[in-house]
């Protein structure tokens, strides 16, 4: 009898599901402490704000899963926001401006991917170098200053701030993108090969998996999505912000690493990342709503990340059961 209770507990509190419990606890905690937090409007704002970060790190999720690293995404987002603002300021339509920002932003991804596959740079160094290029170019656009915009295109405005059935459009769009990504991840050879590369590169290469093509495309994809979120940031702040990236660095990576704790225990995956993004968003928002200084949030996030990794690694070794 005792055994079966224990089994049930083990299923509920597997490391695999622990993140969902953390999310639930966080929501309950903040709701009980802050009236402002539990208002519907605010909860929707939480979902909206998690949209941008989720979009930004979708590509990073796959890059980390394939055994590489990308830390250039926040700088590329900053670049795209400045580029969009510059183009709009110069009289281009929003659509065209976004197109230019995104298509040039992708180039950073190709550059990282090429440096890593062709010149055998460690991914960390390649993306540090490429990230610093992006950051610098973003600053050059307006001498290190933000570039403010007067008008925002209504359709982009709708994506960023609009609601359908009371739910933020941005969140809906991101969820759809994530569902498509989840399908790609689990039902196409691309997803299969990406995990193969991450788990045993020798075996993957022996099986004839096209490492270079996959790695370059993922870095390009990551840069593309970072650029798209940069465009959305420009719309949401009504300005290009050259240093906006910095604030997404920790949150972005925490999202991916937190997400790795569920679904595919220990491996980054898109659904995990989406849940990770919601957690990060709940944390940031809840802390603000409670009037606690925001840096408490970064302490909690950091500790959450380490604890999470420790739980996974140690449970795999059988030290924690």
């Amino acid at each position: 009898m005792q055994g079966s209770v224990k089994n049930k507990l083990e299923i509920i509190f597997r490391p695999n599901t622990i993140l969902l419990w953390i999310l639930l606890l966080l929501v309950l905690f903040f709701s009980s402490r802050s009236v402002a937090f539990r208002s519907v409007d605010n909860l929707m704002e939480v979902l909206r704000s998690c949209g941008i970060i989720a979009l930004m790190v979708l590509g990073v999720t796959w890059i980390v899963a394939s055994g590489e690293t990308d830390i250039s995404f926040p700088e590329i987002a900053g670049y795209a926001s400045m580029m969009t603002a510059l183009m709009v300021k110069n009289g281009l339509t929003w659509g065209l401006a976004a197109g230019i920002a995104i298509s040039t932003g992708v180039l950073y991804g190709f550059l990282s991917g090429t440096l890593i596959t062709r010149f055998r740079f460690p991914a960390l160094i390649a993306t540090i170098a490429v990230g610093s290029l992006a950051k610098s170019i973003a600053n050059m656009i307006n001498k290190g200053q933000p570039l403010y915009l007067m008008n925002i295109d209504p359709s982009i405005q709708f994506i960023v701030y609009g609601k359908v059935f009371g739910i933020p459009v941005l969140f809906l769009v991101v969820v759809i993108i994530y569902l498509i990504a989840a399908w790609i991840q689990d039902h196409t050879t691309t997803g299969q090969h990406l995990y193969a590369l991450g788990e045993n590169r020798t075996a993957a290469l022996e099986a004839g998996i096209k490492e270079k093509r996959i790695i370059i495309s993922f870095f390009a994809l990551s840069a593309l999505l970072a650029s798209v979120s940069g465009v959305l940031l420009a719309a949401s702040f009504s300005s290009g912000q050259p240093r906006i990236g910095g604030s997404f660095f920790i949150d972005g990576l925490t999202t991916v690493f937190l997400g790795a704790m569920i679904i595919k225990a220990g491996k980054p995956n898109v659904i995990g990342t989406l849940i990770g993004a919601v957690i990060i968003s709940v944390l940031s928002n809840g802390i603000t709503m409670m009037g606690v200084p925001y840096y408490i949030g970064s302490i909690i996030k950091g500790l959450l990340m380490i604890t999470g990794v420790a739980v996974i690694v140690l449970s795999r070794k059988g030290i924690i059961k």
């Binding site: 790609i184 039902h187 196409t188 050879t189 691309t190 299969q192 090969h193 995990y195 193969a196 788990e199 045993n200 020798t202 075996a203 993957a204 022996e206 099986a207 004839g208 998996i209 595919k264 491996k267």
Partner: peptide
Amino acid sequence: PQMIPSFTGYENIFLGSESEGKGLFPVI
């Protein structure tokens, strides 16, 4: 023999030749 540890037997057997589909995202 080198294998992908978390993949199933048949996934390992067909690693690298899972699908005849062409295009960006061949379905498995």
